[in-house]
Design a protein around this nucleic acid. Structure first.
Lengths: 152, 152
DNA sequence: CATCTCGCAACAACAAAAGTTTCGAATTCC
DNA sequence: GGAATTCGAAACTTTTGTTGTTGCGAGATG
């Protein structure tokens, strides 16, 4: 099963964007992510719709953050990219009326529910500012390491 | 992202198999799951290799449980079908050297690690006998409901 | 020896993310 | 006003992994 990397990528991009002046174009971001501008627009459209980004057309246009990182949580970004399912394992519904299937799915469901609750709590508790701080700490330890294109 | 339903299906099948006499053929199981015998053999091969099932060829052959349900946990079955990834969301590794990416992936990774730990603990703590008991309780409440093909 | 049944390999179908192409429309610069 | 920049959106292809299918072989039973 292919893993959805949008959340990871968006978090990465947003922290970089906070460190640069002016707008970042879809092209620049795409190069940074090793992808292409259309994919960037597609993914970031959700963040714009949810009010975390603003996009501007034309010369000097591109994407800009509209909120401080301290006001954006990892959960916010997950929601903004469309609340994709966390789990790759699902329950079968071949016989919804079958009591065995119901018992199995109830057990599986409650396990996944608890795990999802934990994930959501954790995601809601971490702001992008926290991640930026974590970056600064790593930076302090290993002084002159490169980051990536956008922040060079 | 397509959800992997093998775990759910195998749990379902094993509990039914415990309630019937003799062997269940791949064909019977396939009909019960709404799939086909080759898929059944493919999935159940792992359970056989791990010692939970035995398969026999020829007339009267098929699949039989080789252990009591009380000695099989949900985690055992997850392992037996190949330890498929629990999560549909992954981390991007576009710039392994980028400290921002490292900070992001560290936060994501620790969240998923904690959630996975919870899942594994839960799965390890529930035996198929527990699920069968749960089934019996449901059965007691709603008396004359059908189950599925195998147990009719 | 005919039939049943699993084992295995190869291939097709399908789903979802990711990548690509190609428009159009809005904005800025000259 | 015209050229260049940049996003927006639709349509399509590629990719990856599960699921489904077909076909043949081998062992077991009657």
């Amino acid at each position: 099963m292919r893993r959805d990397s949008r959340l990871s990528r968006m978090l990465h991009v947003l922290i970089h964007m906070d460190r640069i002046d002016g707008a970042a174009t879809s092209d620049q971001i795409a190069q940074m992510l090793g992808t292409n501008p259309v994919v960037v627009r597609r993914t970031m459209a959700g963040l714009r719709d949810d009010g975390y980004l603003h996009s501007e057309k034309g010369h000097g246009g591109g994407w800009v953050l509209t909120r401080p990182l301290s006001e954006i949580t990892m959960l916010d970004i997950h929601r903004a990219i469309g609340n994709p399912a966390f789990f790759a394992v699902g329950v079968a519904v071949d016989h919804p009326e079958c009591l065995v299937e119901q018992a199995v799915n109830s057990a599986l469901g409650s396990a996944f529910e608890a795990a999802e609750k934990l994930l959501i709590e954790k995601f809601a508790s971490v702001t992008l500012a926290d991640l930026a701080d974590e970056f600064d700490q790593r930076m302090a330890k290993i002084a002159d390491k490169p980051t990536c294109e956008l922040s060079r």
